[in-house]
Structure formats: structure tokens, C-alpha cells
Simulated scan of single mutants.
Amino acid sequence: MEACRQVQGEAACLIAIRKGEYLYWFSIGDCLLYAFHPELAAFGQYQVNQRQFYEWVGQVNTFEQQVPSFSSGVRELRQGENQLLLTTDGLVECPGAVFSEPESIWQQCRDATAADGVSSLLAIIQKNHVRDSATVVSWKVDVSERASYASNQ
């Protein structure tokens, strides 16, 4: 906490961990986590967490508040290939709003390897003269078939 008080400025924090068929996350601030899968996309569901403004770690620190403000959760991944993607606001605030909607990010990544998808996203925002820094981390997870519920009854 003392070291945070000495920092110039503030930062957001997003931690995502996949264990087995579950995705766990902890988020402070305005970073984004997506879980892309065709079954979820059919319902327009892409985003795992929501950006939170006025939450920070640094000189202004949520953990200095009487009640710290953050979000966390657990999401079960779908059977088959899931693509997980973490990003800072630079990607979604790019001029031209090319990636302001989660579906546009998924469309750019869905048929590529995780590395190629990230490279493509970064090339597009560079071409559109992104103003803020952008960090993008992505990986794909294949969840094998689960035991059916009927066999447990």
C-alpha cells in the first residue's frame, strides 16, 4: 500500500485464470475480458466483465477506500474451442470505433490462431491511429466433452 501511494498516476488491473473448464477473474478499472465461443455468440454474449471507471490501483487506490470496489467471478467455459482475450481500453477506444463492439473483435479473431488474431487487431488499430496504448493477450482453450448430467443421476 505504501508503494502504491508513491506511484505517479493510477492503473487498472485484470487477472484471468483458467483452471479446467472454468475461467476465474478479478478486475479493477477499465480493462476488458472476453470469452468467445460460437454458442455464446449466437446469443450476443462475448464480454465477461464490465469496465469500471473511477476504480484504480496506484496513488488513488481502491484498497485505500473504506470498502474496496472491484469485480470478480467465475464462468464455465463452453464445450469445444473457447478463445479468451484480455485487453486495455486502447483497443476499444480506437478512432473510428472499429472495435467498440465485442462482436467485431471476435470476427477479427475467430478463424485465426490467437497470435495471428492479436497481430491483426493491433495492425488495424495502428492503421487507425490509436491514441491510447493497447495491450492484448489472448489464448484458446479446448474444453473436451463433459460427462452428461444423466449419468450422474
Rank of each mutant, 00 (worst) to 15 (best):
Gly29Glu: 10
Ala150Lys: 14
Gln153Ile: 14
Ala3Leu: 14
Gln107Phe: 02
Asp89Val: 04
Ala11Lys: 01
Ser100Lys: 08
Glu64Thr: 08
Leu32Asn: 07
Val57Arg: 04
Ala35Thr: 00
Asn82His: 09
Lys140Pro: 00
Gly58Pro: 01
Lys140Thr: 11
Cys109Ala: 06
Gln108Met: 15
Arg75Leu: 15
Phe36Gly: 02
Gly29Ser: 06
Trp56Phe: 13
Cys94Gln: 12
Phe43Ala: 13
Leu14Gln: 07
Leu86Gly: 01
Ile105Asn: 10
Leu121Met: 05
Glu81Asn: 08
Cys94Ala: 09
Gly90Glu: 06
Leu122Gln: 14
Ser138Leu: 07
Cys13Met: 13
Ser133Arg: 12
Arg5Val: 06
Val136Pro: 09
Arg131Cys: 05
Ser151Ile: 12
Gln83Cys: 06
Gln47Cys: 06
Ser100Ala: 09
Gln153Pro: 00
Asp30Trp: 05
Gly96Thr: 09
Ser72Gln: 15
Trp139Ser: 04
Ala35Pro: 00
Arg5Leu: 02
Gln50Phe: 02
Ala123Gln: 14
Gln47Lys: 12
Tyr149Met: 11
Glu103Asn: 11
Val92Met: 05
Ala115Arg: 11
Ser119Trp: 10
Ser148Pro: 07
His37Leu: 11
Asp89Pro: 00
Cys13Ile: 11
Leu23Gly: 02
Asn152Tyr: 11
Ala115Leu: 08
Asp89Thr: 06
Arg18Ala: 13
Glu2Asp: 14
Ala112Tyr: 13
Tyr54His: 09
Arg51Ser: 05
Gln6Asp: 08
Phe43Tyr: 15
Phe36Asn: 09
Arg78Asp: 04
Glu39Asn: 08
Gly29Gln: 07
Phe53His: 01
Val136Tyr: 08
